[in-house]
Simulated scan of single mutants.
Amino acid sequence: MLTIHHLGKSQSERIVWLCEELGIPYDLKHHVRDPVTKLSPPELRALHPMGTAPVITDGDLLMAESGAIVDYIIARHGGGRLALGPSHPDFAAYLYWFHFANASFQAVMGRNMIQSRLNLPPGNPVAAGVAERLVRALKFVDSRLSDAPYLAGAEFTAADIMIVFSLTTMRYFHPVELAPYPSILAYLRRIGERDAYRRAMAKGDPGMPLLLS
């Protein structure tokens, strides 16, 4: 049985959602953030040297990193569903947006969260540069979603599962106003209509309002 170690309000929501989309049975282990540090509790930190979520076990396998876990589950348990293969016309777009989600977008969200907590003086060039990069990223995503209903193109894929955390739950840690990005808002409405997404969020973070607007 696949076991997902889920930390509340974290990127591990991606793995719960993926399994719901694929109809894969799993055991969900909830972990609660330390009330002072807001980081992983000791029992989650003990599972993996990095001490972050998600972590899965699958038989004797223990794996961390949400992108790697998504790839693993799709290949091992999902029959390749929600990924696009080399012969698909949107293969390159799928690869790009799948990796953009964490390598670029979540990274710039994280940097903005940190700099906002440093109380840097107005006009600080580092803070301004980080903020401007987030605006560029949001405009870029919004432009893509004005051309296609999903990041890879016409089909919902794991690239969408990878980015939605950063557009929604991550905003609990760093609020971002999405009103200037109508295509992102329309996209999040489509995501919110997916039964698997609703089930996953209700199981992983019950009672948490979903930041879909």
Rank of each mutant, 00 (worst) to 15 (best):
A131G: 13
M109K: 03
V130K: 04
R136A: 08
A154L: 12
P182F: 10
P149M: 13
M170Y: 13
R133M: 12
D147G: 14
R111T: 13
V164C: 04
S146H: 08
N124A: 05
F91N: 13
A154V: 11
L178K: 02
L138A: 01
Y197A: 07
D142S: 08
S183V: 03
I163K: 00
I184W: 05
R111V: 09
F98Y: 15
P175T: 07
E177Y: 06
S183C: 08
T157Q: 03
G123T: 05
S143V: 06
A103G: 10
A159V: 06
R194M: 08
R133E: 12
F105M: 10
A200Q: 06
T157R: 02
V130S: 01
P86W: 08
L185P: 00
D147V: 12
A101L: 13
R171N: 06
G192D: 11
R111F: 10
N112K: 09
M170C: 08
S104Y: 14
N124G: 02
R111W: 10
L134F: 04
G85W: 13
I163R: 01
D142P: 09
G192V: 07
N124D: 10
F105K: 06
G192P: 11
T168D: 01
E193Q: 14
I184H: 05
F165M: 06
S116I: 09
L138T: 02
M113D: 11
F140A: 09
T157S: 10
K139Y: 03
R171G: 01
F105T: 02
L188S: 05
I191N: 01
W97R: 14
E155P: 03
F100E: 01
A131Q: 10
A127P: 04
A137P: 03
V126R: 12
P89H: 15
V108S: 09
A137E: 12
S146P: 11
D160L: 03
I184Y: 05
I161K: 00
G129A: 06
R133T: 11
A107L: 12
A159M: 00
F165K: 01
A158P: 03
L167A: 02
R133I: 09
I184E: 04
R136P: 00
A101Q: 11
R198K: 08
